[in-house]
Each structure stands twice: as C-alpha cells, then as structure tokens.
C-alpha cells in the first residue's frame, strides 16, 4: 500500500501536465511578412497593459533601452538586406530594442546578439545598428502588437504599438524584377503587334481575338498597352525583363505603381537583328498560348 502511494505521488509530481498549455502574462507571438521574396519575421512576447494607468514613463522608464516585447528579447529576422525607417539593415537576425523618450524621437536598436533577456538592456557596442525613429502618441493598444499594416510591391510598413505609443517604420526590400530594361535591348521591341490566342492544337482561338499590344519605351522601362486590356485597372503593363528577349507582364495600379509581376506568362521575342517581327506568349508549362506579329 505504501509503495503504491509512493508510485502515485511520483506520477503526480513528474508527469507532464498539459504539454502545450501554459498561461503567460506575455504570450509569445510571431509576425512574418513576405514582400517580393524577402521574408521579415518578428518573434516577440506580448505584454498587456492590464489596467496600469501609465506604461511609458513608468512601467517603461524614459531613456530605458527596452525590448518591445517581454521575457526573451524580441527578434527581427530578414533573409535579404532591407531598408527600415531609412536605415540599411543587412540580412540576419537581431534582438530588437528601443530607447524610449517622452518626445517623439526614439532610437531603434538592432543588436546582432539576438538571444538576450529583456533585462539585459544592451549598451551601445559594435554589431549594433542604432538610428532615430518616430513614436506617435495616442490611442490605446492593450496587448503589444507588431504588424504590417501596409504592403506594396517594394516594401511596406512595420509597426509596433503598445499602450499609447506607436512606432511605424516604412521598409523597402530589394526588387527581384526591376522594371528597367537597357535601351539597346528595348529599342527593337518597340512597336505595335497583333496578338492571336491559340487552342492547344495550335489553331486560333475564337476569343479573345483582335487584340493589339503597343509597346513603348519610356524612362528606362518597357510598357505594353493592351487593347482590349488584359485585367486590372489599367490597359498598360510593364514588360519586366527575365532574360534577353524574355519579359513578363507587370501589372500596375491606378497610380501607375507596379503591383504584380505575372511570371506565369512570358513574352518571348526573337534575338535577330533589327526590329523584332513577332513574339510568343508562353505559359508556365512552356505551352504556346499566343503569337503576336508586328503590324507597325
């Protein structure tokens, strides 16, 4: 009987409770955002205000080197070089700190020693990037939140908000598909072409038909005007260079900004001398979707 009780006691002590469950005052969270092939990840804990009347200036002292999170320091990882709030940030993983101030001028700190406790408050040292960022006052965010409220083809906005302070940092990523094309390569392609869409057996499709595309070159970029248009708000697309003579449509928004590169299609121009007489449109399986011949 005594032995059985000892066994039960041992089981009660050493047996795992719920493998995944544990209440934390500051629960872990992770933000991951990909823009044009660059992935930015913020791993952090989320402290809550929990009724405290003042966070910044009391719970977080002015001048403190504070990690915008809790427990283990918040980390930021990027798999390509980026520009964050005007500061070049090489690809890598960093612990994230902010030197808080009663005014709007805070200091962002990225430290290459990324595995640190929130009370480590790293001093300025080599391997750190420090630069000014702007904090705005107002509103109320109960649980500290990192998010990306805006995404564009070239970047977005990385934002931290807690209590009555918000730091929003615009960022840009390296372009995987620059819109520019060398003038010498572009010149032979400029002109107007008639597009014939094809059935799988190579015969002309009944529709769409009578589509014209006018290719122009302006400010270093090739632009195609499709009549009728393909899709999207504009009848123009960039021609985004993949290789010599190979381009994919780059769709633009109402303001003319690139929003989507449709690499599922490739326009293939020949490599001959002089003006290009024609091009083909090939799909992802390399099937021939359309042919186009120059008319002007």
């Amino acid at each position: 009987m005594r032995a059985a009780l000892l066994v039960l006691l041992a089981v009660a002590v050493i047996a795992p409770r719920r493998a995944a469950g544990q209440i934390r005052a500051s629960e872990r969270s992770r933000l991951s955002q990909t823009v044009d092939g660059t992935m930015i990840t913020v791993d952090y804990a989320r402290p809550r205000v929990r009724g405290r009347p003042v966070i910044f200036g009391r719970a977080v002292a002015w001048g403190e080197v504070w990690t915008p999170g809790a427990n283990m320091a918040t980390t930021l990882q990027t798999d390509h070089d980026i520009v964050l709030a005007g500061q070049a940030v090489p690809k890598g993983k960093y612990s994230v700190w902010m030197v808080v101030d009663s005014g709007p001028r805070w200091t962002m700190v990225l430290d290459t020693v990324w595995e640190q406790y929130h009370e480590d408050h790293p001093p300025a040292r080599s391997g750190q990037i420090r630069w000014p960022v702007t904090a705005t006052a107002g509103g109320m965010t109960e649980a500290l939140t990192w998010d990306v409220p805006a995404v564009t083809a070239t970047g977005g906005v990385l934002r931290m908000a807690w209590a009555d302070r918000t730091v929003a940092m615009p960022f840009t990523v390296p372009a995987s598909h620059p819109v520019t094309t060398d003038a010498a390569e572009a010149a032979p392609l400029v002109g107007t072409y008639r597009v014939t869409w094809l059935n799988p057996d190579g015969t002309p499709a009944s529709e769409p038909h009578d589509q014209m595309v006018q290719i122009s070159y302006d400010k270093g970029a090739l632009m195609a005007r499709w009549t009728p248009r393909l899709w999207g708000p504009d009848d123009r697309t960039y021609l985004i260079r993949l290789a010599r003579g190979w381009f994919s449509p780059g769709f633009i928004d109402e303001k003319g900004a690139l929003v989507d590169v449709f690499t599922e299609w490739v326009l293939e121009f020949g490599h001959g001398q002089g003006t290009a007489p024609a091009f083909e449109v090939r799909g992802e399986r390399d099937v021939l979707w359309a042919t186009a011949v120059r008319v002007r």
Binding site: W231, G232, G283, W289
Partner: peptide, 27 residues
Amino acid sequence: MSFAPVTRRGFIAGCGALMLAWSGTPL
C-alpha cells in the same frame, strides 16, 4: 466580338473556351 475583361478572373472567364481547352490552366 471583342472582350473587355477587367479582372484576372474576368479575363479567364472571357477566354472560357480557350482556357478550358488547356487542361489545367497555369492559374
């Protein structure tokens, strides 16, 4: 007969017969 698709879906729909003929469109 012309077509004036305004969305990617609309373009695909506008090319219905053509797209269906291609077994498994890229999209």
